[in-house]
Amino acid sequence: MDPSSGDLAKAVDARTPLPGNHSPADTPGGIGSDQMKVQTMKLKASNVNFFYGGFHALHEINLQFSANKITALIGPSGCGKSTFLRSLNRLHETIRGARLEGTIVLDNENILAMNASALRRRVGMVFQRPNPFPKSIFDNIAYGPEINGMGNHQHVAELVEQSLIRAALWEEVKDKLHQSAYGLSGGQQQRLCIARALAVNPEVLLLDEPCSALDPIGTAKIEELLFTLKDQCTIVIVTHNMQQAARVADYTGFFLMGKLIEFDDTKKIYTTPGKKETEDYITGRFG
Protein backbone atom coordinates (compact mmCIF):
# COMPACT_ATOMS: atom_id res chain seq x y z
CA MET A 1 0.00 0.00 0.00
CA ASP A 2 1.39 3.34 -0.98
CA PRO A 3 1.17 5.55 2.12
CA SER A 4 0.71 8.63 -0.05
CA SER A 5 -2.64 7.38 -1.24
CA GLY A 6 -4.26 10.74 -1.92
CA ASP A 7 -5.82 9.55 -5.15
CA LEU A 8 -7.06 6.31 -3.71
CA ALA A 9 -10.45 7.62 -2.67
CA LYS A 10 -11.12 8.96 -6.16
CA ALA A 11 -9.85 5.75 -7.67
CA VAL A 12 -12.12 3.62 -5.49
CA ASP A 13 -15.10 5.72 -6.50
CA ALA A 14 -14.24 5.34 -10.16
CA ARG A 15 -14.08 1.55 -10.08
CA THR A 16 -15.84 -0.24 -12.88
CA PRO A 17 -18.47 -2.95 -12.42
CA LEU A 18 -17.38 -6.56 -12.34
CA PRO A 19 -17.25 -8.03 -15.85
CA GLY A 20 -19.00 -11.08 -14.42
CA ASN A 21 -22.13 -9.02 -13.93
CA HIS A 22 -22.72 -9.46 -17.64
CA SER A 23 -24.93 -12.41 -18.16
CA PRO A 24 -25.55 -14.31 -21.35
CA ALA A 25 -28.88 -12.58 -21.48
CA ASP A 26 -27.25 -9.16 -21.06
CA THR A 27 -24.91 -9.49 -23.96
CA PRO A 28 -25.67 -10.36 -27.56
CA GLY A 29 -24.46 -13.81 -28.46
CA GLY A 30 -24.27 -14.92 -24.87
CA ILE A 31 -20.72 -13.72 -24.37
CA GLY A 32 -19.57 -12.61 -20.97
CA SER A 33 -16.38 -10.57 -20.52
CA ASP A 34 -15.57 -7.89 -23.04
CA GLN A 35 -12.21 -9.38 -23.98
CA MET A 36 -13.98 -12.39 -25.45
CA LYS A 37 -15.53 -10.28 -28.16
CA VAL A 38 -12.24 -9.94 -30.02
CA GLN A 39 -11.95 -13.72 -30.48
CA THR A 40 -12.75 -15.35 -33.81
CA MET A 41 -15.95 -17.32 -33.37
CA LYS A 42 -15.92 -20.83 -34.79
CA LEU A 43 -19.28 -22.09 -33.75
CA LYS A 44 -22.35 -20.12 -32.77
CA ALA A 45 -25.60 -21.39 -31.29
CA SER A 46 -28.55 -19.00 -31.35
CA ASN A 47 -31.88 -19.41 -29.59
CA VAL A 48 -31.42 -23.15 -29.33
CA ASN A 49 -34.33 -25.07 -27.81
CA PHE A 50 -34.26 -28.83 -27.57
CA PHE A 51 -37.05 -31.30 -26.95
CA TYR A 52 -37.12 -35.01 -26.13
CA GLY A 53 -40.69 -35.66 -27.25
CA GLY A 54 -42.73 -33.35 -25.03
CA PHE A 55 -39.86 -32.63 -22.61
CA HIS A 56 -38.28 -29.22 -23.12
CA ALA A 57 -34.61 -30.02 -22.36
CA LEU A 58 -32.85 -26.83 -23.48
CA HIS A 59 -34.21 -23.30 -23.27
CA GLU A 60 -33.07 -20.48 -25.55
CA ILE A 61 -29.36 -21.26 -25.48
CA ASN A 62 -27.15 -18.57 -27.00
CA LEU A 63 -23.50 -19.49 -26.96
CA GLN A 64 -20.47 -18.84 -29.12
CA PHE A 65 -17.28 -20.89 -29.21
CA SER A 66 -14.01 -19.11 -29.87
CA ALA A 67 -11.69 -20.65 -32.44
CA ASN A 68 -8.65 -22.45 -31.04
CA LYS A 69 -9.86 -22.15 -27.49
CA ILE A 70 -11.10 -24.73 -25.00
CA THR A 71 -14.62 -24.18 -23.72
CA ALA A 72 -15.92 -26.25 -20.81
CA LEU A 73 -19.60 -26.87 -20.17
CA ILE A 74 -20.38 -27.64 -16.54
CA GLY A 75 -23.52 -28.28 -14.56
CA PRO A 76 -25.31 -30.95 -12.54
CA SER A 77 -26.52 -34.20 -14.09
CA GLY A 78 -29.52 -33.68 -16.32
CA CYS A 79 -28.85 -29.96 -16.83
CA GLY A 80 -28.65 -30.35 -20.61
CA LYS A 81 -24.94 -29.85 -21.20
CA SER A 82 -24.43 -33.21 -22.97
CA THR A 83 -27.63 -32.71 -24.94
CA PHE A 84 -26.30 -29.36 -26.09
CA LEU A 85 -22.90 -30.87 -26.93
CA ARG A 86 -24.49 -33.62 -29.00
CA SER A 87 -26.56 -31.09 -30.90
CA LEU A 88 -23.36 -29.38 -32.06
CA ASN A 89 -22.70 -32.22 -34.48
CA ARG A 90 -26.32 -33.34 -34.77
CA LEU A 91 -25.85 -36.62 -32.94
CA HIS A 92 -29.28 -35.98 -31.44
CA GLU A 93 -30.75 -36.99 -34.77
CA THR A 94 -30.04 -40.59 -33.85
CA ILE A 95 -32.49 -40.30 -30.93
CA ARG A 96 -36.13 -40.94 -31.74
CA GLY A 97 -38.41 -38.03 -30.85
CA ALA A 98 -35.55 -35.56 -30.31
CA ARG A 99 -36.07 -32.14 -31.87
CA LEU A 100 -33.85 -29.09 -32.14
CA GLU A 101 -35.06 -25.53 -32.72
CA GLY A 102 -32.89 -22.51 -33.35
CA THR A 103 -29.71 -22.19 -35.37
CA ILE A 104 -26.19 -23.49 -35.00
CA VAL A 105 -23.63 -22.01 -37.33
CA LEU A 106 -20.16 -23.37 -38.13
CA ASP A 107 -18.07 -20.72 -39.90
CA ASN A 108 -21.23 -18.94 -41.09
CA GLU A 109 -22.71 -22.19 -42.38
CA ASN A 110 -25.92 -23.52 -40.85
CA ILE A 111 -25.09 -27.02 -39.60
CA LEU A 112 -28.72 -28.10 -39.92
CA ALA A 113 -28.49 -27.60 -43.67
CA MET A 114 -25.24 -29.54 -44.03
CA ASN A 115 -24.75 -33.19 -44.89
CA ALA A 116 -24.58 -34.91 -41.48
CA SER A 117 -21.51 -37.00 -42.37
CA ALA A 118 -19.69 -33.96 -43.71
CA LEU A 119 -20.58 -32.07 -40.53
CA ARG A 120 -19.32 -34.86 -38.28
CA ARG A 121 -16.06 -34.98 -40.22
CA ARG A 122 -15.58 -31.29 -39.37
CA VAL A 123 -16.96 -31.59 -35.82
CA GLY A 124 -15.63 -34.75 -34.16
CA MET A 125 -16.84 -36.34 -30.95
CA VAL A 126 -15.09 -38.27 -28.16
CA PHE A 127 -17.31 -40.02 -25.64
CA GLN A 128 -17.23 -40.70 -21.92
CA ARG A 129 -16.07 -44.30 -22.17
CA PRO A 130 -13.32 -45.22 -24.61
CA ASN A 131 -15.02 -47.03 -27.50
CA PRO A 132 -12.34 -48.40 -29.80
CA PHE A 133 -13.50 -50.58 -32.70
CA PRO A 134 -12.77 -54.32 -32.34
CA LYS A 135 -9.86 -53.88 -34.70
CA SER A 136 -6.15 -53.24 -34.55
CA ILE A 137 -4.76 -49.92 -33.34
CA PHE A 138 -3.83 -49.07 -36.94
CA ASP A 139 -7.24 -49.94 -38.33
CA ASN A 140 -9.03 -47.90 -35.67
CA ILE A 141 -7.29 -44.78 -36.94
CA ALA A 142 -7.28 -45.73 -40.63
CA TYR A 143 -11.03 -46.37 -40.66
CA GLY A 144 -12.09 -42.71 -40.90
CA PRO A 145 -9.65 -41.63 -43.61
CA GLU A 146 -10.40 -44.78 -45.64
CA ILE A 147 -14.19 -44.43 -45.65
CA ASN A 148 -13.75 -40.74 -46.43
CA GLY A 149 -11.48 -41.59 -49.37
CA MET A 150 -8.58 -39.61 -47.97
CA GLY A 151 -5.78 -41.02 -50.13
CA ASN A 152 -3.93 -44.26 -50.85
CA HIS A 153 -2.56 -46.76 -48.36
CA GLN A 154 0.74 -44.90 -47.97
CA HIS A 155 -1.06 -41.64 -47.25
CA VAL A 156 -3.39 -43.34 -44.77
CA ALA A 157 -0.37 -44.85 -42.99
CA GLU A 158 1.09 -41.36 -42.67
CA LEU A 159 -2.24 -40.08 -41.35
CA VAL A 160 -2.31 -42.87 -38.75
CA GLU A 161 1.17 -41.95 -37.56
CA GLN A 162 0.41 -38.22 -37.48
CA SER A 163 -2.84 -38.76 -35.62
CA LEU A 164 -1.19 -40.95 -33.01
CA ILE A 165 1.56 -38.37 -32.59
CA ARG A 166 -1.02 -35.59 -32.21
CA ALA A 167 -2.84 -37.67 -29.62
CA ALA A 168 0.44 -38.24 -27.73
CA LEU A 169 0.12 -42.01 -28.17
CA TRP A 170 2.62 -42.79 -30.93
CA GLU A 171 5.60 -43.54 -28.70
CA GLU A 172 3.53 -46.00 -26.66
CA VAL A 173 2.03 -47.95 -29.58
CA LYS A 174 4.38 -47.59 -32.56
CA ASP A 175 5.71 -51.12 -32.09
CA LYS A 176 2.30 -52.76 -31.79
CA LEU A 177 0.18 -50.99 -34.37
CA HIS A 178 -1.35 -54.24 -35.60
CA GLN A 179 -2.30 -55.53 -32.18
CA SER A 180 -5.88 -55.25 -30.92
CA ALA A 181 -6.89 -51.85 -29.56
CA TYR A 182 -8.52 -53.70 -26.67
CA GLY A 183 -5.03 -54.52 -25.34
CA LEU A 184 -4.44 -50.86 -24.50
CA SER A 185 -5.10 -49.35 -21.05
CA GLY A 186 -8.21 -47.21 -20.53
CA GLY A 187 -6.23 -44.00 -20.84
CA GLN A 188 -4.50 -45.23 -23.99
CA GLN A 189 -7.83 -46.33 -25.47
CA GLN A 190 -9.27 -42.86 -24.87
CA ARG A 191 -6.26 -41.24 -26.56
CA LEU A 192 -6.74 -43.74 -29.39
CA CYS A 193 -10.32 -42.50 -29.73
CA ILE A 194 -9.03 -38.94 -29.82
CA ALA A 195 -6.47 -39.95 -32.46
CA ARG A 196 -9.30 -41.59 -34.43
CA ALA A 197 -11.28 -38.36 -34.28
CA LEU A 198 -8.20 -36.35 -35.29
CA ALA A 199 -7.46 -38.56 -38.30
CA VAL A 200 -10.07 -36.79 -40.40
CA ASN A 201 -8.72 -33.36 -39.36
CA PRO A 202 -11.76 -32.00 -37.55
CA GLU A 203 -12.05 -28.26 -37.02
CA VAL A 204 -13.97 -28.74 -33.80
CA LEU A 205 -13.51 -31.51 -31.24
CA LEU A 206 -16.36 -32.26 -28.84
CA LEU A 207 -15.51 -34.26 -25.73
CA ASP A 208 -18.22 -35.63 -23.46
CA GLU A 209 -16.69 -36.41 -20.05
CA PRO A 210 -13.54 -37.81 -21.71
CA CYS A 211 -11.72 -38.54 -18.45
CA SER A 212 -14.48 -39.85 -16.24
CA ALA A 213 -13.37 -43.46 -16.70
CA LEU A 214 -9.65 -42.73 -16.41
CA ASP A 215 -7.18 -42.72 -13.53
CA PRO A 216 -5.30 -39.50 -12.61
CA ILE A 217 -2.37 -40.33 -14.89
CA GLY A 218 -4.64 -40.97 -17.88
CA THR A 219 -6.57 -37.81 -17.02
CA ALA A 220 -3.40 -35.72 -16.85
CA LYS A 221 -2.29 -37.01 -20.25
CA ILE A 222 -5.62 -36.15 -21.86
CA GLU A 223 -5.59 -32.68 -20.29
CA GLU A 224 -2.05 -32.06 -21.50
CA LEU A 225 -3.12 -33.27 -24.93
CA LEU A 226 -5.97 -30.78 -25.03
CA PHE A 227 -3.52 -27.91 -24.54
CA THR A 228 -1.50 -29.03 -27.56
CA LEU A 229 -4.59 -29.71 -29.69
CA LYS A 230 -6.18 -26.32 -29.25
CA ASP A 231 -3.71 -24.78 -31.68
CA GLN A 232 -5.18 -27.10 -34.29
CA CYS A 233 -8.88 -27.10 -33.47
CA THR A 234 -11.61 -25.63 -31.34
CA ILE A 235 -12.41 -27.77 -28.32
CA VAL A 236 -15.64 -28.08 -26.36
CA ILE A 237 -15.57 -30.33 -23.32
CA VAL A 238 -18.39 -31.41 -21.05
CA THR A 239 -17.13 -32.33 -17.61
CA HIS A 240 -18.44 -33.06 -14.14
CA ASN A 241 -14.98 -32.46 -12.78
CA MET A 242 -14.97 -28.76 -12.02
CA GLN A 243 -11.28 -28.72 -11.23
CA GLN A 244 -10.67 -30.15 -14.68
CA ALA A 245 -12.70 -27.34 -16.24
CA ALA A 246 -10.72 -24.86 -14.17
CA ARG A 247 -7.42 -26.40 -15.29
CA VAL A 248 -7.98 -26.76 -19.00
CA ALA A 249 -10.69 -24.41 -20.22
CA ASP A 250 -10.30 -20.87 -21.49
CA TYR A 251 -14.03 -20.30 -21.14
CA THR A 252 -16.69 -22.00 -19.06
CA GLY A 253 -20.45 -22.17 -19.41
CA PHE A 254 -22.66 -23.20 -16.51
CA PHE A 255 -25.91 -25.00 -17.34
CA LEU A 256 -28.77 -25.53 -14.93
CA MET A 257 -32.15 -27.10 -15.68
CA GLY A 258 -31.75 -26.67 -19.41
CA LYS A 259 -30.66 -23.04 -19.23
CA LEU A 260 -27.30 -21.42 -19.73
CA ILE A 261 -26.91 -19.52 -16.49
CA GLU A 262 -23.51 -17.97 -17.03
CA PHE A 263 -20.74 -18.00 -19.59
CA ASP A 264 -17.42 -16.26 -19.11
CA ASP A 265 -13.66 -16.52 -18.80
CA THR A 266 -12.87 -19.61 -16.74
CA LYS A 267 -10.76 -17.50 -14.39
CA LYS A 268 -13.70 -15.18 -13.84
CA ILE A 269 -16.18 -18.01 -13.28
CA TYR A 270 -13.94 -19.62 -10.65
CA THR A 271 -12.97 -16.47 -8.77
CA THR A 272 -15.85 -14.03 -9.10
CA PRO A 273 -18.87 -15.65 -10.75
CA GLY A 274 -21.59 -13.20 -11.65
CA LYS A 275 -24.56 -15.39 -10.76
CA LYS A 276 -25.50 -16.84 -7.40
CA GLU A 277 -26.51 -20.16 -8.98
CA THR A 278 -23.00 -20.52 -10.45
CA GLU A 279 -21.40 -19.65 -7.13
CA ASP A 280 -23.59 -22.17 -5.28
CA TYR A 281 -22.81 -24.92 -7.77
CA ILE A 282 -19.06 -24.51 -7.98
CA THR A 283 -18.65 -24.08 -4.21
CA GLY A 284 -20.70 -27.22 -3.59
CA ARG A 285 -23.57 -25.40 -1.87
CA PHE A 286 -26.01 -26.25 -4.61
CA GLY A 287 -29.56 -27.15 -3.61
Binding site: P3, S5, L8, A11, V12, A14, L18, T272
Partner: peptide, 28 residues
Protein backbone atom coordinates in the same frame (compact mmCIF):
# COMPACT_ATOMS: atom_id res chain seq x y z
CA UNK B 1 2.50 2.11 9.30
CA UNK B 2 -0.24 0.36 11.31
CA UNK B 3 -2.75 2.52 9.45
CA UNK B 4 -1.22 1.36 6.16
CA UNK B 5 -1.74 -2.26 7.23
CA UNK B 6 -5.33 -1.45 8.19
CA UNK B 7 -5.72 -0.11 4.65
CA UNK B 8 -4.29 -3.35 3.26
CA UNK B 9 -6.81 -5.31 5.35
CA UNK B 10 -9.63 -3.16 3.96
CA UNK B 11 -8.38 -3.83 0.43
CA UNK B 12 -8.46 -7.56 1.13
CA UNK B 13 -12.03 -7.20 2.42
CA UNK B 14 -13.02 -5.46 -0.84
CA UNK B 15 -11.50 -8.33 -2.81
CA UNK B 16 -13.22 -10.85 -0.58
CA UNK B 17 -16.66 -9.24 -0.77
CA UNK B 18 -16.76 -7.79 -4.27
CA UNK B 19 -13.92 -9.47 -6.14
CA UNK B 20 -12.33 -6.09 -6.94
CA UNK B 21 -8.63 -5.51 -6.60
CA UNK B 22 -8.01 -1.92 -5.52
CA UNK B 23 -4.37 -2.37 -4.54
CA UNK B 24 -2.02 0.12 -6.16
CA UNK B 25 -5.11 1.72 -7.71
CA UNK B 26 -5.31 -1.40 -9.94
CA UNK B 27 -8.91 -0.79 -10.92
CA UNK B 28 -8.11 2.69 -12.25
Amino acid sequence: RIADHATNIAESVLFMTEGVDVRHHAHA
